[in-house]
Lab assay of single mutants.
Amino acid sequence: MIINNLKLIREKKKISQSELAALLEVSRQTINGIEKNKYNASLQLALKIAYYLNTPLEDIFQWQ
Results as ranks from 00 to 15, higher is better:
L24C: 15
G33R: 15
I3F: 10
I2T: 10
Q29Y: 09
K14E: 09
W63T: 06
I2D: 04
A41D: 01
A22S: 13
L57A: 05
I49Q: 00
Q62S: 11
Q29N: 13
L43G: 06
N54C: 10
I15S: 00
L45T: 05
K12P: 01
V26L: 05
S16D: 04
N37S: 10
A22Y: 10
L43I: 12
A46H: 03
N4Q: 03
E35D: 02
A41V: 15
K48T: 04
Q44H: 14
V26R: 02
S27T: 11
N54R: 09
P56W: 05
L57V: 13
I2S: 08
N5C: 13
S18T: 12
N37Y: 07
L20M: 05
K13S: 09
Q64M: 09
L53G: 00
V26F: 02
Q44A: 14
E58W: 11
G33N: 15
I2P: 07
N4F: 06
A46Y: 13
L47T: 12
K7R: 14
L23Q: 10
I34L: 09
E11F: 06
K48I: 04
S16P: 05
Q17N: 02
L20R: 00
N5S: 04
Q29M: 09
L45Q: 05
L43P: 10
A50N: 01
L23A: 15
T55S: 08
A50V: 05
I3M: 13
L57G: 03
K36L: 13
K12M: 15
S42D: 10
K13D: 03
P56D: 08
E19V: 09
S18R: 14
S27G: 07
T55Y: 05
K48S: 07
K13C: 12
L20Y: 02
I60V: 07
I2W: 13
L20S: 00
E35W: 03
N4M: 04
S16M: 05
I9E: 04
W63Q: 06
Q29D: 15
E19S: 11
L53K: 00
I2R: 09
Q29C: 12
A46R: 10
A21N: 02
I31F: 02
N40T: 15
Q64I: 09
S42W: 05
I2A: 08
N40K: 15
L6Q: 02
R28Q: 14
F61P: 01
I49A: 04
I60C: 02
R10A: 04
V26M: 04
N5G: 04
I15K: 04
L53Q: 00
Q17A: 07
M1S: 09
I9L: 09
I60T: 03
Q44P: 11
L24M: 07
L47V: 12
K36C: 10
A21D: 01
N37M: 08
L43V: 10
K38D: 09
E58V: 09
I60G: 01
A22C: 12
L20T: 00
Q64H: 13
L24I: 10
Q44S: 14
K12W: 07
Y39Q: 12
N32F: 05
K36Y: 06
Y39K: 11
E25R: 14
K36M: 14
N32M: 14
I34F: 03
N4I: 06
I31L: 12
Q17I: 13
G33C: 15
M1G: 08
L47P: 00
L8N: 14
W63G: 06
E35V: 02
Q62G: 12
I15G: 01
N40Q: 14
P56R: 09
Q62N: 08
Y51K: 10
I34W: 04
N32C: 08
A22F: 10
Q17T: 07
W63H: 06
L45P: 00
Y39H: 12
S16H: 04
I49N: 00
E25F: 08
L57P: 04
I15N: 00
E25C: 15
I3D: 06
N37A: 07
N4D: 03
A21W: 03
I49Y: 00
L8Y: 10
V26N: 01
Y51R: 08
T30H: 11
I9H: 06
L8E: 15
L23S: 09
L23V: 12
Q17Y: 03
N40M: 14
Y39N: 07
L43F: 14
L6Y: 00
K14F: 08
Q62K: 11
Q64R: 11
F61G: 02
K14Y: 06
L57Y: 07
I34M: 04
L47M: 14
I60F: 03
A22Q: 13
I3G: 10
N37D: 07
F61V: 02
S18W: 11
Y52L: 12
N4A: 03
Q62M: 11
K14G: 15
N4V: 06
T30K: 09
A50M: 04
D59W: 07
A50F: 03
Y39F: 14
L57C: 07
A21E: 02
I60N: 01
V26Q: 02
M1D: 06
I49S: 00
S18K: 13
M1V: 12
L43K: 11
E35P: 01
L47I: 12
Q62Y: 09
E11Q: 12
L24N: 00
K38Y: 14
Y52I: 15
R10P: 02
N4C: 09
N37P: 01
S42Y: 04
L6S: 01
V26C: 07
L57H: 02
K36V: 09
A22T: 12
K36Q: 15
A46I: 07
A21Q: 01
D59I: 09
T55D: 02
K12N: 11
K12D: 09
K36D: 12
L47G: 07
E25I: 05
Y52K: 05
Y39W: 12
K12T: 11
I3P: 05
L23H: 12
L20W: 03
A41L: 15
I3S: 10
L43Y: 14
Q62F: 08
W63K: 06
A41H: 04
I15V: 10
N54H: 09
K48G: 06
Y51N: 08
L43H: 10
K38E: 14
L53C: 02
L45G: 00
T30I: 15
K38M: 13
F61E: 01
R28M: 13
L45H: 02
N40A: 14
Q17H: 03
I31C: 04
Y39S: 08
P56N: 08
A46L: 14
T30G: 02
R10D: 03
Y51M: 10
L6W: 01
L24P: 00
V26W: 03
Y51D: 09
I15A: 01
N37V: 03
K48F: 04
G33M: 15
K12H: 09
R10S: 03
Q64L: 06
R10H: 03
L45Y: 01
R28G: 05
L24K: 00
N4K: 03
L57D: 01
D59G: 06
Q62C: 10
Q17F: 03
S18P: 06
S42G: 11
L24H: 00
E58T: 11
